[in-house]
Design a protein around this nucleic acid. Structure first.
Lengths: 160, 160
DNA sequence: AATATTACTTGCAAAATGCAAGTGAGATGC
DNA sequence: GCATCTCACTTGCATTTTGCAAGTAATATT
């Protein structure tokens, strides 16, 4: 068994309620896919911060522990939010790419950010962001989509 | 000490990372406020299903256990998403009302629902919902806002 | 006065999380 | 060709959170 095949084979089990019965209702479904702190933060890293490599996620400022990171990445792959690839230029590295499904979350995600900048008194997001999104949501979404495309275009050929 | 004063005084402690350091970044802030299964589902009940009373939340189909329910309601009150009131017509009952802050989440919330209806193959949401939101987001939001107003208008005079 | 409701609280077992220390495959240096 | 390093996880164990069942106190009902 190679290292690349073992991902998600062990470690902590999934959070409660992340089973087949936890869908049907759209809110419940969403909660099952990204309704926990770490999945949410990882999606941010992928969609907004251009992070793709395991090591990049690990180094992000929230300091997720490595077993939870592995578990959540596997969960996001399982739920079709990310795809996992071996870096062809350095076969011991792995990267994760957002899928159409996770990219389709961008509008809602940005909506949440606008809400946060309005209600978090210590927000670090510039006022210009909320302003831009409110005056031209489609344009703002398109800008983020383009950024994602740029990041993915710079990645090596995905191996599997 | 009266019963009405004891809410949130004990029970399980808050989930990790729900402290003062977990803000700044808008995504982290949002995760701190409603980035867990139960808070998310409770907000759905309040914003979309017109639920207001402790007993109503308890009876909703996900069967939240009563200690977690009390804990999450207290958390949502603390974070300014809900206000807690004693029912003046039956002083052993308590209801919770959405604030401007939680109502401001409606657009993002509905965006998430549209996403779910698109990607959950067993979604129970009608196709008409996503269609309506996509063709007229503002109108759809306004409709839900009006529903919330109706529910709140039917409530007894809030006591404290 | 007795019983029922309602909104929680408490105790305990089960599960998830966090941390530190592995492990094994592939890259790198010499 | 072998030691060393990097990288992506895994494992074990202590701590924390969750879930369940059984209270409890205040108010309402009969």
């Amino acid at each position: 068994m190679t290292k690349a095949d073992t991902a998600g084979s062990a470690g902590p089990s999934k959070p409660k309620g992340w089973n087949k019965e936890w869908n049907g209702c759209p809110v419940r479904y969403a909660a099952g896919v990204f309704g926990d702190k770490w999945s949410f933060v990882l999606l941010r890293d992928v969609l907004l911060h251009g992070k793709r490599y395991y090591g990049e996620f690990q180094r992000s400022e929230e300091r997720i522990s490595t077993n939870i990171l592995a578990n959540r990445l596997a969960h996001l792959v399982e739920t079709g939010m990310l795809t996992r690839h071996i870096d062809s230029t350095s076969r011991n590295k792995v990267f994760y790419r957002p899928t159409a499904k996770s990219r389709a979350l961008l509008p809602a995600f940005l909506g949440v950010m606008v809400w946060s900048t309005e209600y978090d008194s210590c927000t670090e997001a510039p006022d210009s962001f909320a302003k831009a999104f409110r005056s031209d949501p489609k344009g703002t979404i398109a800008w983020y989509e383009a950024e994602i495309d740029k990041v993915d275009a710079a990645l090596p050929d995905p191996e599997p």
